[in-house]
């Protein structure tokens, strides 16, 4: 028996019907995605205050690209990405593999790793600000046990990035873990059974079966994690304001400063365009390169 697939014919009436359905979404996409994106591109070629804008070509791009703070911020963001993404992915996969097995307390442990996901980043920053406070903070209190002195973790340009990275790994690893748990549920049992009969060791099974089969999950989570490393900057507002001396500043927070502290609109527009290009680049990399290499 064949089921006749009935779809709407693509006559004008159905076109209008579909456009009508899309219209509500489309208004807001236009107002808050398309228009602002184009507006940023346009503004990036103009300088001066809002009321007396003057065309300045690529001047502002040159200025921004030559700016030492900008270079530092981009470098910071790359360090932040390299510091957070691989470690939290590794941790997420490690936790998922061991917590996937049924054992007493595994659901309790999963909870303990996942709950930071639902806590707002700004509240996380408050909590970790206390943890990192010199002398009275939890970390220094703990290190006192080993005879260590007081450390100004957030006030020292050499340590500030590291402690931020640790905090973000704590917040995000559990979130990525659940994607791995989902991925593990879908792995074929028979392959493992076959490998076991062949006498494969656990580590070999991981290397040759689990890890490759989890690759789609890893790539998906990697894209999410990279995007997050450019998108989530709330903690800077509470913890460091990007300091000391821009040592912890990130691109989106730098845009916030340019636009709303220094009111340098041209610069904010240029920085926004750069961030948009980075975001599009990440997605393009994902769809054009990774998707072709990996077969789902």
């Amino acid at each position: 028996m064949t089921t006749k697939r009935r779809k709407f014919s693509s006559g004008t009436r159905h076109n209008l019907f579909a456009y009508g359905l899309l219209f509500p979404s489309f208004i807001f996409l236009t107002m808050f995605t398309f228009y602002p994106t184009l507006k940023s591109i346009q503004l990036s070629f103009y300088s001066g205050p809002m009321t007396r804008l003057q065309f300045s070509g690529l001047d502002q791009y040159k200025e921004v690209l030559a700016d030492e703070i900008f270079r530092k911020v981009i470098l910071n963001n790359i360090i932040f990405m390299i510091g957070t993404v691989p470690t939290s992915l590794f941790l997420a996969m490690y936790l998922a593999i061991w917590l996937n097995k049924k054992m007493a307390g595994s659901s309790l442990l999963r909870t303990s790793f996942f709950y930071p996901t639902i806590i707002p980043l700004i509240a996380v920053a408050n909590i970790w600000l206390f943890i990192y406070t010199p002398q009275y903070g939890l970390l220094d209190n703990f290190l006192h046990l080993f005879g260590a002195g007081d450390t100004n973790w957030l006030g020292n340009p050499n340590t500030v990035m590291i402690v931020m990275i640790v905090m973000i790994i704590w917040k995000d690893a559990g979130f990525y873990m659940i994607f791995y748990l989902a991925g593990l549920q879908n792995l074929p049992r028979d392959v493992y059974e076959a490998a076991e009969i062949e006498g494969a060791k656990p580590l070999q099974m991981f290397r040759h079966i689990t890890f490759p089969l989890l690759m789609p999950t890893t790539l998906f989570v990697m894209i999410v994690a990279i995007t997050n490393s450019f998108k989530n900057v709330d903690h800077l507002y509470i913890m460091t304001k990007g300091g000391p001396d821009n040592a912890s500043n990130l691109l989106l927070y730098h845009i916030y400063e340019a636009a709303f502290t220094n009111w340098d609109l041209g610069k904010a527009a240029v920085l926004t365009v750069i961030l948009i290009v980075i975001m599009l680049g990440i997605t393009a990399f994902n769809y054009l390169y990774l998707d072709r290499k990996i077969h789902y």
């Binding site: 107002m31 808050f32 995605t33 228009y35 602002p36 994106t37 507006k39 940023s40 503004l43 450019f230 998108k231 989106l252 845009i255 916030y256 340019a258 636009a259 709303f260 609109l265 904010a268 527009a269 926004t272 961030l275 948009i276 975001m279 599009l280 990440i282 997605t283």
Partner: peptide, 15 residues
């Protein structure tokens, strides 16, 4: 999905 409202802080303020 790529250009999320979060990164358009500045132009969206103007809108």
């Amino acid at each position: 999905l790529m250009i999320q409202p979060e990164i358009l802080l500045f132009p969206n303020y103007q809108v």
